[in-house]
């Protein structure tokens, strides 16, 4: 087996890469891809902590299952919003949509 720290390092790097995608991308769907990478890093952390610290209990896996459900809900709503935004603005570039700018 590999130490717990290896999983945490991978998850931390994935989270940072996802955060870069969220902050730097123009297209809303690309921002969403960055968000999904961050979600996965958190999920990996939850499962790794469950396996190394409390493998006989259910808290960690239930956490992961709830994260999966929330990610699915977030994907459905987010992509519906992108389609609605596209219909009204003709683009999903986050830089272009400035209707709320003062």
């Amino acid at each position: 087996m590999v130490p717990l720290g290896w999983y945490l390092v991978v998850a931390a790097l994935l989270f940072a890469i996802g955060a870069f995608g969220v902050l730097a991308r123009k297209n809303a769907i690309a921002i969403f891809i960055g968000l999904e990478i961050m979600f996965n890093a958190a999920l990996l952390n939850a499962v790794a902590f469950w396996r190394y610290l409390h493998p006989t209990q259910f808290d960690g896996t239930v956490f992961a299952i709830v994260i999966l459900a929330v990610a699915a809900a977030e994907a459905a709503v987010g992509l519906a919003v992108f389609i609605a935004v596209y219909r009204r603005f003709g683009t999903v570039d986050a830089d272009e949509i400035t209707l709320l700018r003062g």
Partner: peptide, 14 residues
Amino acid sequence: PAWNRAWPWAVLMA
């Protein structure tokens, strides 16, 4: 273009 103009700050933050 793939990134917005503030991407160096995003690299720094990540």
